[in-house]
Nucleic acid binder design. Structure first.
Lengths: 203, 203
DNA sequence: TTGTATTATCGACACTGTGTCGTTAATATA
DNA sequence: TATATTAACGACACAGTGTCGATAATACAA
C-alpha cells in the first residue's frame, strides 16, 4: 500500500486532508472552497490541483482511504476466529462489530464530522456498504434458508445495516459514552430480542 | 396554508421546483447551477432570486413543503383511531406506517430522487426526524418503562427509525414492488420477531 | 557532498457562475 | 379598463476555478 512516496507529497496530502476535516467541522462542506482549504493548509492553491481534481475528489479519496483502513483492520482479526465463534450470542458482543467500534474510536474526530455533517456525499454510503457486507455474512451464517427469514433477505440486510450505522452515529454524537464492547453487546441485544425485554408476540 | 398567492408566483415556484427534481435526477445535485435550473424552467435567472436565496434554499423549501404534506396527511388518519388500534399486532400493518408508504407512493418520483441521491442535504434527515417521532410514540405506547427495554430508549428509537427509512429507500429503489400495506406488515414482522422465523435466543 | 529529478511556489490569465442593479414588458385582479 | 405586482432583460462587479510558464526548494541517489 504505502509505496516509496515522496515525503513532501505525503505531507502535502495530509495537510490538505486535515484542513478539509477542520473546515467541514467549522463551516460545513458546502461553504468550503479550494481557496479555503489551501489557505488553511498553508499551501498554494495551484499545488492543490497537482494532487486532486477538485474539492469532491479530495473528499472521495480521503474517505476511500479511511474506509479501506477500517476494513483492513477488521478482516485479520475476524479471520483468526473459528466460524462457530462468529455466531451471535446474547451476552457476547459480536467480534466484527466490536472491532468496528474500536477502529472508529481511533479516528473519532473524522468519523464524527463525516457522518454527522448532512451535506457530505459518499462517506456514510460507503460505510453503510461495508456494514451491509458484515450483516449479510452474519445472517447467511445464522440462517442460509430464505424460507426461514421473516422478510426478504436483502430487505433484512438493509434494515439492520442502516440501524447499526445509525447507532454508530448516535454513539459519536454523544461523544462515545460507552465502550465499543458495550455498544456491540447492545446491538446484539436489540437485534436478537427486539426493543422489549418481555415480548408478548414471541412464540 | 395556501394564502391568496398570485397564480404567477405559484406557477414560477412550481416550475423551479420541478426543474430542480429533474436536473438532480439527470446530473446530480452538486453539478447543478442556478443557471441550469432557470434555463430548464424557462425563466430568467434574475427571477430565481426573487423567490429563493440560492440553490440550497430552493431545495430546503421544497423539502420542507413535501414533508409537511406528508405529516399532515398522516395525522388525521391516525387521530381517528383509538389507542388500542395503534398497538402493534403481528399480522396487521401499523396504521401510521401504512399511510406513510401510501403517501410516499403518491410522490414517488420526488422521494426516490431526493432519498437516493447521496449529495442531497436535509431531506433524508428531515424524513428520519419524522419517523423518529412515530417510532418514539410507538415504543412509548408499547412500553413506558425504561427498565423493560433491552437498550437505552433513544438508542432504540434511532435504531428502528433508521432501519425503517432504509426499507423505504429500498422499496423506492426497487420501484415499489409491494403494496404499502404489505410493506408496513413486513416492518411489523421484522421488528417484532427479528430476522429469523425460529429464534433460538428468545425466551 | 553534490547533481538531478521531482515537486512546490508564484503571478497571471481566461472562464464560469453569482448576486444585484435599473429599466421595460407582461399580467392578474379589482 | 386601470393599476399594482411581478417577470424579463441586459449589464455590472465580484468570487472562485482551472491552467500556464518560470522560478525556487528539496528529496534522494550516485
Amino acid at each position: 500500500m504505502s509505496k516509496k512516496l515522496d515525503p513532501r507529497v505525503r505531507r502535502t496530502r495530509q495537510l490538505l486532508r486535515d484542513a478539509l476535516v477542520e473546515l467541514i467541522d467549522e463551516q460545513g462542506y458546502e461553504k468550503i472552497t479550494v481557496q479555503d482549504i489551501t489557505q488553511r493548509a498553508t499551501l498554494n492553491r495551484a499545488t492543490f490541483y497537482l494532487h486532486y481534481r477538485d474539492k469532491l475528489d479530495l473528499l472521495y479519496q480521503s474517505s476511500a482511504e479511511i474506509l479501506q483502513e477500517l476494513v483492513s483492520s477488521i478482516q485479520p482479526a475476524v479471520r483468526e476466529k473459528k466460524e462457530v465463534d462468529l455466531l451471535p450470542n446474547y451476552d457476547q458482543p459480536h467480534e466484527t462489530f466490536m472491532h468496528l467500534f474500536e477502529q472508529i474510536a481511533l479516528n473519532s474526530k473524522l468519523y464524527k464530522v463525516y457522518l454527522t455533517e448532512q451535506t457530505i456525499p459518499y462517506f456514510a454510503a460507503g460505510l453503510k456498504d461495508i456494514i451491509i457486507e458484515f450483516v449479510a455474512n452474519g445472517i447467511a451464517l445464522m440462517e442460509p434458508n430464505d424460507q426461514k427469514l421473516t422478510v426478504p433477505r436483502d430487505m433484512a440486510v438493509r434494515f439492520y445495516a442502516a440501524a447499526f450505522l445509525e447507532v454508530i452515529i448516535w454513539w459519536l454524537e454523544h461523544d462515545m459514552p460507552y465502550t465499543p464492547k458495550f455498544m456491540a453487546t447492545q446491538l446484539m441485544h436489540i437485534t436478537i430480542k427486539g426493543p422489549y425485554m418481555d415480548n408478548p408476540f414471541q412464540q
